[in-house]
């Protein structure tokens, strides 16, 4: 398993339409739902917001990673969206989120391979050149290459 197995083509949104956190969340939730990764969209949505309540997933550096380990998730998946102008995510550093990774993890899943991949993604996002490259990639293929490079 690789990150490109979790973050497939149809889960990439190069230009998010939403103008606030709720709209962006719904946009990415729709994508996940369309791939059949969710068994209960509302449940997963509630779990995502519960996590945001606990502390914003806007970790700064223009990145937000709404995520949840949820009974509403059937298959582990990552949806990725870009918003060059940024949306307010109540981030710790006050910066708007320009890269959003929505991470869906099932409550029960055999093995921990998917968790290891997500761990790798989390660590990689700390790397500034990686973030910059994701923002600057002007087409889908470049993003795919970046993600496959992990």
């Amino acid at each position: 398993m690789k990150l490109s197995d979790l973050l497939t083509d149809d889960l990439m949104v190069l230009q998010l339409k939403g103008n606030n956190r709720e709209e962006v969340m719904d946009e990415l939730l729709d994508r996940l739902d369309e791939t059949g990764a969710l068994s209960d969209r509302d449940q997963f949505r509630r779990d995502l917001y519960a996590r945001e309540e606990h502390g914003s997933t806007g970790i700064g550096f223009g990145i937000a990673i709404p995520h949840g380990k949820s009974a509403g998730v059937d298959q582990p998946r990552v949806a990725f969206g870009r918003k060059p102008s940024g949306v307010d995510w109540n981030s710790i550093d006050g910066e708007p989120a320009r890269l959003v990774f929505m991470i869906a993890v099932p409550e029960e899943q055999a093995g921990d391979e998917h968790l290891r991949i997500l761990q790798l993604l989390s660590r990689k996002l700390i790397d500034e050149t990686f973030r910059q490259a994701l923002l600057e990639a002007d087409n889908r293929d470049k993003i795919k290459t970046l993600i496959e490079s992990m």
Binding site: T57, K69, Q119, S122, R123
Partner: peptide, 12 residues
């Protein structure tokens, strides 16, 4: 709490 993302970002 979830142990999916922040744990590893902070470590990195």
């Amino acid at each position: 709490p979830n142990g999916i993302a922040h744990t590893y970002m902070a470590a990195e």
